[in-house]
């Protein structure tokens, strides 16, 4: 089993006009998807992120508000999962509810750092 990071961009329900019921229904789908991963013992953790942030550069001398990216490119959250291989990690990601709002999932394998 290897570990993978799923990076979510865009597909943010917050940007779309939604009724509270629609919002809740969408969140239930995230819950159900993750519940399935949890049941299989494949979920390691992860959180959604707020859109606001700070970017530090030059040793912290330059600090700017927010990611520079366009709405669609802002990282909206991440998940850490376990999968046999890249293929499985991709298959898992296909069921992600983020595609309901045209978001993207970037799948990256965790690099073990052997010293």
């Amino acid at each position: 089993m290897n570990e993978f990071l799923l990076l979510f961009r865009g597909g943010d329900g917050r940007a779309v006009q939604q009724s509270p019921d629609e919002m809740q229904a969408h969140m239930q789908k995230w819950g159900a998807w993750m519940h399935g991963l949890g049941e299989q013992g494949k979920l390691l953790g992860g959180q959604p992120l707020k859109n606001e942030g700070k970017v530090l550069e030059k040793g912290g001398e330059v600090i700017t508000d927010g990611p520079f990216a366009e709405g669609k490119e802002i990282v909206g959250g991440y998940l850490l999962i376990k999968a046999e291989n890249f293929n499985e990690a991709v298959e898992i990601s296909k069921a992600c509810p983020i595609f309901e709002f045209d978001g993207t999932v970037e799948v990256r394998e965790i690099q073990p750092m052997d010293l």
Partner: peptide, 20 residues
Amino acid sequence: SPQLQVLLQSEWSLSPTIEN
């Protein structure tokens, strides 16, 4: 249970899990 714990630790699934 560990499965439940990981779901309760993530904001993605915390509320839906409790709701459920």
